[in-house]
């Protein structure tokens, strides 16, 4: 019986009605640094050189009085008993996180006693933390564009669907901005891919810096194409915002001698604003607006309402 107790990979201790120790297994001796012979027949709270937490003593007293089992969780108590993780090295042993249960038992002489079981929750906490950190990295990798650090296409696709559904349900307007860097292919051909990547990064930063609301996102849609999703803007404000985006990139004043517009990096912006209904497609309409901006000579914004009726209302 004692052998079984001492082989267990958890702390087992029993106390009598006065709180004196009747049983003290090897595990608890190892982690408390108190030998069985020094623990037996002594009041539990006097065995350790450090204090036992008051909530542990209150729980023990309750179990001895009412004979109801008690749980002390790691979450709320961390480390009620002065137990330590014993490492092989000379490092300072760290205090162990514990989960404790106290259950009433009947002694051979029919007296009230309690069984205290202690498990080490440090390892499970550490494992949880590692898994969580790992899954956060994976989550970030899955949703972020590696070059620009803004959202990637996959994130945009999921977000766009939710944003449309929300706007549809709550009947507020949603604005989609489609953005393309003008004559980017010629830039890449002339300046090389490293410089081209740098332009994409700087344009992404400039677009991102214009956003201030938590509800707005900017994502890299494709090679040199970007997309912004912004809820709850009147069409007039969306139009002004598109102009702000265009001038933010223009003000970067990055030379582009192969550009057929102004010998510097510029963008074209297509915007569509409206309350989404059944079949109309904000994204297609924003793409149409972008196409029109390019046809009109680039470095400009075109703003289209989602439906003809809204176009009429705006005028």
């Amino acid at each position: 019986m004692n052998d079984i107790c001492n082989t267990l990979n958890l702390g087992v201790c029993a106390v009598d009605a006065e709180g004196k120790v009747l049983l003290w297994n090897d595990w608890i001796a190892k982690h408390s640094g108190v030998k069985e012979t020094d623990a037996l027949n002594k009041p539990l709270e006097q065995i350790f050189s450090e204090p036992v937490s008051p909530s542990f003593l209150a729980a023990l007293k309750n179990t001895l009085t009412y004979r109801l089992p008690v749980v002390l969780s790691t979450a709320l108590h961390r480390s009620p008993l002065p137990l330590h993780n014993v490492s092989g090295t000379n490092q300072q042993p760290s205090r162990m996180y514990q989960s404790i249960t106290i259950t009433p038992i009947q002694s051979q002489r029919d007296e009230s006693c309690c069984l205290i079981q202690v498990t080490d929750s440090s390892t499970s906490i550490k494992r949880e933390k590692m898994l969580r950190a790992h899954s956060e990295i994976l989550k970030k990798e899955a949703t972020t564009d590696g070059l620009t650090d803004i959202c990637n296409r996959r994130f945009f696709d999921a977000h766009y669907e939710m944003a449309v559904a929300d706007a549809k349900r709550q009947k507020y307007p949603l604005s989609i901005f489609m953005i393309d860097i003008d004559f980017f292919k010629s830039y890449n051909d002339y300046y090389g891919h490293v410089a081209g990547d740098d332009v994409i990064k700087r344009v992404a930063d400039a677009l991102k810096s214009q956003l201030s609301r938590a509800t707005d996102i900017v994502a890299r849609y494709g090679g040199e194409e970007f997309v912004l999703v912004m809820p709850n803007l009147p069409q007039q404000v969306a139009k002004q915002f598109a102009e702000k985006l265009r001038s933010a990139v223009f003000n970067l004043a990055m030379p582009h001698i192969k550009s057929q517009t102004l010998k510097q990096i510029t963008i074209s912006v297509g915007v569509c604003t409206g309350i989404p209904e059944n079949d109309n497609n904000l994204l297609n309409k924003a793409d149409t607006a972008l196409y029109q901006a390019k046809v009109k000579g680039r470095n400009q914004c075109v703003c289209l309402p989602l439906s003809e009726a809204e176009e009429y209302l705006e005028q």
């Binding site: 109801l68 008690v70 749980v71 002390l72 969780s73 979450a75």
Partner: peptide, 17 residues
């Protein structure tokens, strides 16, 4: 899991006692 067990345990034990 564990924290809810404890919260429930405190309330149930208090009522039973």
């Amino acid at each position: 899991h564990e924290a809810m067990c404890e919260l429930g345990n405190i309330i149930l034990n208090a009522c039973l006692s």
